[in-house]
């Protein structure tokens, strides 16, 4: 059954931007998780920014997906930030007992980009010390 809803995954620099703009059914949630991980592998992105500002409800299934993506991305050396959780969603998440373990959250996409960029720049500095540099396409190059 392939009638899941399409959620875009956009590569912006070394970050995957995932704007969730529809109320997803469970298959779509599972499929999205798999697609994010395969895009991480395919593009070599180091960060995932999931925008949930249009989601009016996050139940335990979606909450678990967010935690799982963060954990799996971490294993693939990428950091996940969830942005734009609505106040009503924050209240229901806490009442449900979901702490979104391991998921970093920020208020908006700007803050999320800043956070991920800061993290990536810090890593670049370390890499540069080790003799690695990044070209303008976001690819790692050996300066030697």
């Amino acid at each position: 059954m392939n009638n899941f809803q399409r959620i875009p995954i956009l590569k912006v620099g070394r970050v995957l931007l995932v704007p969730i703009q529809v109320d997803m059914d469970d298959q779509t949630v599972i499929h999205l998780q798999e697609r994010i991980l395969s895009e991480l592998e395919r593009t070599g992105a180091r960060g995932v920014l999931i925008d949930v500002s249009l989601l009016e409800m996050v139940d335990s299934f979606i909450g678990r997906m967010l935690s799982d993506i963060a954990a799996m991305a971490r294993v693939m050396d990428a950091r996940t930030v969830v942005v734009g959780i609505q106040p009503a969603v924050a209240i229901t998440l806490v009442e449900l007992g979901l702490e979104l373990n391991g998921v970093e959250t920020v208020l908006n996409v700007d803050e999320g980009i800043k956070l991920l960029r800061g993290e990536l720049d810090a890593r670049d500095a370390e890499d540069a010390e080790d003799g690695w540099e990044w070209n303008r396409f976001g690819e790692q190059v050996d300066p030697a």
């Binding site: 009016e56 409800m57 996050v58 139940d59 335990s60 299934f61 009503a88 229901t92 449900l96």
Partner: peptide, 28 residues
């Protein structure tokens, strides 16, 4: 189901947080 419950709750006059609670409970 969660969409219908949210609409019904909104039509009855529930506030946004309670609509979200009811939609979430419905989903679970």
């Amino acid at each position: 189901a969660r969409g219908e419950v949210r609409s019904l709750a909104a039509a009855l006059g529930f506030g946004f947080v309670d609509q979200t609670r009811l939609a979430t409970v419905t989903s679970e």
